[in-house]
Amino acid sequence: MTILIIAEHDNSSLKEITLNTITAATQIGGDIDLLIAGEDCAAAAEAAAKISGVTRVLVADQACYNGQLAENMAALIMSMASNYSHILAPSTANGKNVLPRVAAKLDVSVLSDIISVESPDTFKRSIYAGNIIATLQSLDPIKLLTVRGTSFSPAEQNGSAFIKVVDGAFDEALSLFINNDSVVNERPELTSAKIVISGGRGMQNGENFSMLEKVADKVGAAVGATRAAVDAGFVPNDMQVGQTGKIVAPDLYIAVGISGAIQHLAGMKESKVIVAINKDPEAPIFQVADYGIVSDLFDTLPELENAL
């Protein structure tokens, strides 16, 4: 068996979720090739070569891979797909965008967002907003999987993989990258942070999220939000934690002014320790929280900031 992994990176560095995906591949077994496709992505490739368990790093460095457009990425992956028994991608916006396109071109299925590897052809995934765990066996000749990062530990970084340049620019000319409007964020990434503090509708407005940020900065936490807070325009979409947003599983998750809709719980209930701060003692979030404080968050957040 040989496994191809599509790396998540920003050309200059590798995203942590790539390491989790490599661990999933290691559990399947076999040689692992890691594809870095981008523009001016040599630095990301250097970082990739250091990951333990990776046999080869394949670098496709072309202008047409800027922005990781699905059409061009899929054409590139198709050019090498026949060499592999499995193709994996992290369950990120990029991975979810590209892999199903590759699958349909290969006439195979994808198992999305797997949470465990049972055997080389059998995997578990979560459905119905996290209320059901399904065990699924793939009958396809090539298995395509996206991997939930929080379900696998990150691979070590003391390897020395061979870097191979992949020639050819697959420009399908179906789409054009215009720009990225990235949120500049000095805090840790939500999906890999050890501590996450999130706010919901109870925060009342975007300005009040600064109260969460002050607490976050005292303990090196990432800041998240519920769908309600994002929909209300309090904070940008990349902060959304939940079934249709980001899945997080930090050591400590602090839910502030969050009622605990099942769609939100689906994104954070694997956290090691959950703390809820809410003035409504009946809020469903208290049913999953290890520790709760029934109080007005506008009193408790400054108190927490001062005590840390």
């Binding site: 765990i133 399904a134 929280a289 709760g292």
Partner: peptide, 20 residues
């Protein structure tokens, strides 16, 4: 179908903790 559902289960339920 390209995959077979072998089994479904409920996830582990978290117990409510302490109100402090």
């Amino acid at each position: 179908p390209r995959f077979k559902m072998l089994n479904v289960e409920s996830p582990q339920v978290r117990e409510a903790g302490d109100i402090l």
